[in-house]
Design a protein around this nucleic acid. Structure first.
Length: 687
DNA sequence: ATCGGATGTCATGAC
DNA sequence: TGGTCATGACATCCG
């Protein structure tokens, strides 16, 4: 806290120096000893009343990070830095830092403005700033967080294996017994197997999907975090420590002023310092950020800094007048601009030709170009203003409403469900079926066994459907790794485990009637190729035909004396079977692609909405900056006095900012020339 | 009866 | 060159 106070004090001092250099008397002691709550608390420590403002509640709530209330000090500290950055880098685009206004509002020493005004200003601007900057973003973040949270919940559920899903061998044996008891009722053992498999599939699938989602969300979380960091950086906190530091020369100049000089006491300019010598202002105030004042730089530097007759001494007025004129009213206008269009300013009268025309015009050009850009993007200024209002009302989420996380979740849910229905096949097959299906029709007895077994298989239509989707020879998976993610509809390898004698129920336990039914049903369940193979008395299973590696397949063919028709059929079966799997694979990929594209679109729409919000904030910030510049200009100019103590005529003189950070008082004619030159340059550049 | 989704099959091209 | 895969197009089934 001590170091923080040090920083704050230094920051305030530096800002005071800046204000002093532009002609404003700032008495730090006044701040330190005044009753101005924010500043005093910033330096001396926060009061409970301050730290419990809605400002922080809002921020903490929206951020969800539970920032300690004392972090307000940092906020305000950075706020000061941001203000400096804004003042120094008006030609640069900076992220909305509307909260800047908060504790720059300084109290009229004469008490014309009560401390509550800055306080309210702080509250207003701060909350506004929060809503503007962090609110909508937080909205996005919040939604994403919420989404991620729900996803996490799902993941938790997915990671946890379903109760009972992990069957032991005893369980399987029990299932066998139950199946033997139920076989007469027509319930196939695969019903049990399938349920088992389904659980495993669900677990596997959810594990897989959960992992994927976890990765996805981790990635999105990181992205969101990066965005947050970026946004934070855009709020000005990432500014280099220099845009804050007053260079040494400045301090030297300031403190080397005659001790008895009241101006030096106020960190202001020494009296009668000729501005054309370009010493005090240049070295003290703007040197550190001269590179940021690109708007003024090259042309101004090229000005024949001319005869000393054209550059008159810049003499700040006395501190009293400064205090009185740079009072709350002007500050209120400065920091709480009532006009957002930035085209008019109450304090800018016709008697004060705008010497910042170049700057403002350029800034306006930027704004216009931005608005044009917005229009090009289908986001017209009206929408921008609406968006701004939404922003103000902390309804930034509305942009995302049509692409809410729920929709994303649903899409992902559908994705996972679809993929689970398909990819579950291979995993279930590998876990449940130890032997591929056999369609051995070489003997009647085999056929009988087969039919009995087939009768036991998939008595229930639902099962048949599931079984078609789930069976896969695990031995082939190693040869066909891509199948791991594909659900196959292998009608032709339905029969399969029937030949596994270990799994076969004793034929004697089967009743004749149910056996016939089961045979009929199995007949219906057999694929056309299976029927053909059966009709052609192909001596091995379709599954082998399809899934054996080509060498083994040829070897298998060589073991049998097969007719040409049989060989042709076998080749067709193999071709069709492989093509069937390929088609399923292809469809799954296509579906995945569509889902990914859908998700990408949603992400892009979210990004677009965020960028639009940021753009609105940029525009708003730009307007505020322009108003501030104008106000500061008028304040500075209004305090300038010639050797005789008379104010300069705005119609005859203007302030000109040089590229090196100095501020010159030059005749208006020269300023107009500069303005025209600056106008021409961008046009030439555009050509 | 119609429709749409799921699936199987064929043709074709690429590797 | 044959095998395999990917994919568009079409057919079929089914709810």
């Amino acid at each position: 806290m001590l170091s923080l106070k040090k920083y704050l004090t230094e920051g305030l001092l530096q800002f005071t120096i800046l204000l002093s250099l532009i002609g404003v008397r700032v008495d730090v002691d006044t701040y330190l000893t005044s009753q101005l709550p924010p500043l005093r608390e910033i330096i001396l420590g926060p009061s409970s009343a301050y730290t419990q403002t809605q400002f922080h509640n809002l921020r903490n709530t929206l951020d969800g990070y539970g920032i300690h209330p004392k972090s307000i000090d940092l906020d305000n500290y950075f706020t000061a830095r941001r203000l400096l950055s804004q003042v120094r880098a008006l030609d640069r685009f900076q992220v909305p830092t509307t909260e800047v206004n908060a504790w720059l509002v300084h109290r009229d020493p004469e008490g014309s403005v009560s401390g509550s005004q800055p306080n309210s200003g702080l509250a207003l601007e701060s909350s506004s700033g929060l809503q503007d900057v962090t609110g909508p973003d937080n909205g996005v973040r919040e939604s994403e967080t919420e989404q991620g949270f729900s996803e996490d919940l799902e993941d938790l559920g997915a990671v946890a294996p379903p109760a009972g899903g992990d069957l032991t061998k005893e369980d399987i044996d029990l299932i066998d017994i139950l199946w033997r008891q139920d076989i007469d009722l027509g319930a196939g053992r695969e019903v049990f197997d399938y349920s088992h498999r389904q659980k495993e599939q669900d677990v596997d699938k959810e594990l897989q999907d959960g992992g994927e989602r976890e990765d996805t969300w981790a990635g999105e979380g990181a992205e969101a975090l990066a965005r947050d960091l970026l946004v934070d950086g855009e709020t000005g906190e990432s500014f280099p420590a220099q845009a804050m530091e007053v260079n040494t020369s400045a301090s030297e100049i300031l403190y080397s002023a005659p001790p008895g000089d009241p101006l030096s006491t106020n960190y202001s300019l020494a009296p009668n310092t000729p501005i054309n010598q370009n010493v005090s202002l240049h070295q003290a105030s703007l040197g550190g950020c001269s590179q940021d004042f690109s708007l003024f730089s090259p042309e101004v530097e090229s000005i024949p800094v001319a005869s000393s007759s054209t550059l008159l001494p810049l003499v700040p007025s006395n501190s009293t007048s400064l205090n009185s004129t740079f009072g709350s009213t002007n500050l209120a206008g400065l920091f709480f601009p009532s006009q957002l269009n930035g085209t008019a300013n109450d304090t800018s009268g016709p008697e004060l030709p705008d010497p910042l025309g170049g700057l403002l015009d350029e800034a306006m050009l930027d704004e216009i170009s931005l608005m044009d850009l917005a229009i090009e993007e289908g986001f017209n200024p009206v929408q921008a203003s609406q968006l701004e209002e939404e922003f103000d009302s902390d309804s930034g989420l509305s942009l995302d409403s049509s692409h809410s996380p729920s929709s994303l979740s649903s899409s992902e849910g559908s994705s996972s469900s679809s993929s689970s229905s398909s990819s579950s096949a291979s995993s279930s097959a590998s876990s449940s079926f130890s032997e591929e299906g056999a369609v051995g029709y070489s003997s009647d007895s085999e056929t009988l066994d087969l039919e009995e077994a087939e009768g036991a298989v998939g008595y229930q239509p639902e099962y048949s459907k599931f079984c078609r989707m789930s069976y896969q020879d695990p031995s082939q998976l190693s040869c066909l790794p891509y199948l791991e993610h594909v659900g196959h509809n292998h009608t032709y390898n339905m029969a399969p485990s029937a030949l596994d004698s270990a799994d076969l129920p004793p034929p004697s336990t089967l009743k004749k009637g149910s056996k016939e039914k089961q045979a009929d049903f199995l007949d219906k369940q057999m694929s056309r190729d299976e029927h053909r193979a059966r009709a052609m008395k192909i001596p091995f299973t379709n599954d082998k035909i399809i899934n054996l590696p080509v060498e083994e397949f040829n070897e298998l063919l060589s073991k049998y004396q097969l007719s040409e028709a049989q060989l042709s059929l076998i080749r067709d079966i193999r071709r069709r079977g492989k093509n069937k799997m390929a088609a399923q694979n292809c469809r799954k990929r296509k579906l995945d692609t569509i889902l990914n594209l859908e998700r990408d679109v949603e992400d892009l729409q979210r990004d677009k909405a965020r960028l639009l919000r940021e753009k609105v904030e940029f525009l708003r910030s730009l307007r505020q900056m322009k108003q501030k510049v104008q106000s500061l200009y008028q304040e500075v100019f209004g305090r300038l006095r010639d050797e005789n103590g008379r104010p300069y005529s705005p119609s005859q003189y203007a302030l000109q900012y040089a590229g090196d950070g100095s501020v010159l008082l030059i005749p208006r004619t020269m300023a107009d020339q500069q303005a025209r030159r600056q106008e021409r340059k961008p046009k030439d550049r555009r050509k």
